[in-house]
Nucleic acid binder design. Sequence first.
DNA 1: GGAAAAATTATACACTTGCATAATTACTCG
DNA 2: CGAGTAATTATGCAAGTGTATAATTTTTCC
Lengths: 215, 215
Amino acid sequence: MTDERRKFKRESAKARKEALILATLELVAENGVRGATVRGIAQRADVTQGLIRHYFSSKEELIIAAYEHHMTAMTDQTFAPAAGVDGTALARLTAFVNASLTPPVVDPRSIALWASFLNKVQQDPQMKATHERTYAYFRDFLEGLIAAALEEAGRPAAPARLRQLAIACNAVIDGLWLEGGALPDAFAPGELADIGRQSVAAITGLNLEQEAEKT
Amino acid sequence: MTDERRKFKRESAKARKEALILATLELVAENGVRGATVRGIAQRADVTQGLIRHYFSSKEELIIAAYEHHMTAMTDQTFAPAAGVDGTALARLTAFVNASLTPPVVDPRSIALWASFLNKVQQDPQMKATHERTYAYFRDFLEGLIAAALEEAGRPAAPARLRQLAIACNAVIDGLWLEGGALPDAFAPGELADIGRQSVAAITGLNLEQEAEKT
DNA sequence: GGAAAAATTATACACTTGCATAATTACTCG
DNA sequence: CGAGTAATTATGCAAGTGTATAATTTTTCC
């Protein structure tokens, strides 16, 4: 009677892959990489499990694709706002800190994904490479912004000093990102970005608040 | 012939539980909570899997016990050094920052454990309670140290300001802890603690370096 | 409209998982 | 030293895992 074969619609490879990747990210965030089972992912994407093997040669490959998708999204969300500002270096630094500490970058799901992927990232060479590239890019970019802003203010810094400033500022941003994502209700909207700008200002001796008010 | 039954030695409940918990933490750090299988844990503890059920009524219970063991160890390692100092509040603050940013607190395994447990912590009420208690304790302690040190320096701060300072300092420490554990080879010994003290000093306006040199 | 091709579903398999229970062994205490 | 008891091992089981492959349906194209 009801044991009819399931109806389906054909989709483009691009759309199906995207849907599977998004379903994978949801489940990885919720249950970790091992908890994101092939059957669960298929169900979330409203598809039967065999289809996954049609688009990805293994679960491993799907996981890697999902990780790269996520990292690209995070990078875009962080860098786009700062790149859009074409004023002073100080203005770009301010925009960068703000973007790093407001949604959608600050988000419980991002933290969950970060945590879930960590194990795999440290073991799989390809994922490790993606991670390190992204991290280095982030920190170098921040260091560049700080260097330019200091020069602009007439107080250029030596490379060693610059490295320390970048590490420290990166740490505040990371720490606030972590706290904001782990305890979403503990902070008022904009509070994290406020504290972030103040802290970067205190560490570098630059005045980011003045910049923030210009908006 | 060789299918003799395995020889064994009886141990105290305390010792066996401890051994099982340590094996669990190892495997959770390496492979995540789901990757830490009952069989794997038993093998790591040099025991057969049935014994786990004899000491813990389920895997879940073992995981929770392991998490609490780890959190207690982390807390002890962080707070003991600061509690040992009975000089000025500034000295205690400095000791606290140092302890938070040197081994064994800074350690790749700690990061891996933190990440591996995150999912479960957000889902299991008991683990969530443990986590929030530990986190609040940490931040309140830091806020208290900052408040005392500021008062000592003749510049007491209002509660709202104090809260922001504690959040910011906590974030730097967390961020540096994270970077140090995720990229162990990227920092020279003591470098993280140096940067941590400088950053906390910059944010609060206190002079932690002078304190550090007294050692 | 019908055949060819590709997307999708359905089924099967070997392996792992957590848990339960029976069989044995090491230690304790008289 | 010998019986009793609790610790430990051994075995089994049902459910879930990733993967492989066969069966079917949708779309395309002449």
